[in-house]
Simulated scan of single mutants.
Amino acid sequence: MGLFNKVLASIGIGSAKVDTKLHESQLSLGERITGVVEVTGGNVDQDIDDIYLSLCATYTKEVDDRKVTKQAIIEKWKIAQSFVIRAGEKKEFPFSFSLPLDTPITVGKTRVWLHTGLDIKNAVDPTDEDYIRVQPNRMMNEVFRVMENLGFRLKEAECKEVAHYVRKNLPFVQEFEFVPTSGEFRGKLDEVEMIFFPHTPQECELLIQVDRRARGLAGLFAEALDLDETFVRVTIHEQHIQTLQTELAALIRRYA
């Protein structure tokens, strides 16, 4: 009977189970994720090599002129290694780590989750997934507030694959598309797109794309050739918050 149970456990029947319990499932960038991983033994004793947590997110990739949803690992942590879980036994492994600053916020179709896995040799590895709602940190919120004050509305936010020279550590970036609905830029711009590259909680690099509205025949030709789009990089700091609206307005105005 013991041998039969071992065979069943090797294919995942009666094997150890894993369940991750987060203390908070809604977090801002840079905040600490805390929780506990519960491992419950199955019908037989099993050797567990590792427990690992992977922070994952979805993004889109263009394949043959259509969008395909892909998954990427943002960061991975090992929280335990080499132990035995007895049949019916329960063990708990607490964890705590900072939510990486380049984690995408959960807006639009973007999904972020914590994947938990047990590494068991010669057996199906038990897993668990827990979704996280990621909120922007103070620096991002200030940029969103300024754009709203300047008359822009967030039209779309999307994580998508981009060329190597644009992205940083991940295979994708999260792009925010703002359209002018009031104020001085209405009628002058089609949209402003932004990508955030946080360096620290107090410093962030912005890649801004200003898409000018086509004016006349020359403008239409420029738009057709994508010559009406201007990219600019700017780094903002905590001390810029008081003057951020003035500085962003001047930058957008320069390329409008």
Rank of each mutant, 00 (worst) to 15 (best):
L53C: 08
E238I: 13
A9G: 12
Q174M: 15
L55E: 04
P180S: 05
D119R: 11
S10G: 12
I85S: 05
F178C: 01
P100S: 12
D119G: 08
P126K: 01
G35L: 09
P136I: 06
I79C: 09
G117A: 15
K109R: 14
L217E: 07
C159L: 11
E24S: 12
P100Y: 12
H240Y: 10
K61R: 11
V18M: 05
R213Y: 04
H164I: 04
R138V: 15
K21D: 01
G41F: 05
F196Q: 09
T110I: 15
G108A: 13
A224S: 08
A256N: 08
T243V: 15
Q26C: 01
C204H: 08
I105L: 02
V112P: 01
A222W: 02
E191I: 07
T243M: 12
L227D: 01
I252W: 01
K168L: 00
L227H: 03
A87C: 09
T58E: 08
G42M: 12
G35Y: 06
D130N: 09
I11G: 01
D102A: 05
K155E: 13
A218N: 02
V166D: 00
W77N: 10
A224H: 00
R213W: 03
R111P: 10
K121E: 01
E184R: 11
Y165T: 08
Q46W: 03
G42K: 03
I105H: 00
P104D: 09
Q242L: 15
M139W: 06
F221D: 07
R215D: 06
L206I: 14
Y255I: 09
E31A: 02
S28W: 00
K21W: 04
S28K: 02
I74A: 11
L248H: 02
T235M: 10
L154I: 00
V84C: 09
Q242F: 14
G42W: 05
S54Q: 13
G187W: 10
E177H: 07
V143M: 04
D64G: 08
T106F: 06
L101V: 13
A163C: 00
G151K: 02
E38L: 10
L8Y: 04
E191K: 10
D125A: 13
G2D: 15
L99C: 09
R213M: 11
Y59T: 14
L3Y: 15
K6F: 13
M139N: 03
T58V: 13
